[in-house]
Simulated assay, not measured.
Amino acid sequence: MLLAHRRDLSPEIRDALADDPDAKVVKSIAPHPGLSEAQLRAMVTRHGARVLAKVAVNPDATAQLLQDLALHRPPVQTRRCRSA
């Protein structure tokens, strides 16, 4: 995760970290310049609200992406109750 905070990463490493299944890693790499709109959208699709704010501060986020992020509605989480 600390590696994802570095701004001097090669594009290959940056892209690999952007596809990481761990939301904490993706959250760390999301503000990194050079990520495509498709990569940023994929991050939000996979990890939702956990990475939304960090994707929004990415300098390469387009106006349309920012608008979509502002309108993002996280799915409703249901809680299952155990019967006694």
Rank of each mutant, 00 (worst) to 15 (best):
M1N: 14
M1C: 14
M1W: 13
L2N: 08
L2C: 00
L2V: 04
L3T: 15
A4C: 10
A4H: 11
A4G: 10
H5F: 14
H5Q: 08
D8I: 10
L9G: 04
L9H: 06
S10N: 04
S10Y: 05
S10A: 12
S10L: 05
S10R: 11
P11D: 11
P11E: 12
P11S: 12
P11V: 13
P11A: 13
P11Y: 15
I13G: 01
I13A: 09
R14K: 10
D15R: 15
D15S: 13
A16C: 03
L17Q: 06
L17Y: 04
L17S: 05
D19T: 03
D20F: 11
D20N: 15
P21R: 09
P21L: 03
P21D: 10
D22W: 12
D22R: 13
D22S: 11
A23K: 13
A23G: 09
A23H: 13
K24L: 15
V25Y: 04
V25F: 12
V25P: 05
V26L: 08
K27C: 10
K27G: 08
I29M: 07
I29C: 11
A30M: 10
A30N: 08
P31Y: 15
P31N: 09
P33Y: 11
P33R: 14
G34W: 08
G34L: 01
S36Q: 06
S36Y: 10
S36R: 09
E37H: 07
Q39S: 04
L40H: 07
L40Y: 11
R41N: 09
R41V: 04
R41K: 15
A42T: 09
M43Q: 14
M43R: 10
M43Y: 14
M43V: 09
V44Y: 03
V44I: 13
T45F: 09
R46C: 06
H47F: 02
H47V: 00
H47S: 01
H47I: 00
G48V: 07
G48L: 06
A49Y: 00
A49Q: 13
R50Y: 08
V51I: 05
V51E: 05
L52C: 04
L52Q: 08
A53F: 01
A53W: 00
K54C: 01
V55W: 07
V55H: 05
V55L: 03
A56H: 02
V57H: 06
V57F: 08
N58E: 05
N58M: 03
P59W: 15
P59F: 11
P59I: 09
P59K: 08
D60I: 00
D60A: 06
A61C: 01
T62F: 09
T62R: 06
A63D: 14
Q64M: 03
Q64I: 07
Q64V: 09
L65W: 07
L65K: 06
L65Y: 11
L66V: 03
L66I: 03
Q67I: 00
Q67E: 07
Q67D: 06
D68F: 01
D68Q: 15
D68I: 01
L69T: 02
L69V: 02
L69W: 02
A70Q: 10
A70R: 14
L71C: 03
P74D: 14
P75R: 12
P75I: 06
P75F: 01
V76K: 11
V76F: 00
V76E: 11
Q77Y: 11
Q77S: 10
Q77F: 03
Q77M: 08
T78D: 00
T78A: 04
R79P: 00
R79N: 07
R79L: 12
R82L: 10
S83M: 06
S83V: 08
A84D: 15
A84E: 13
A84G: 13
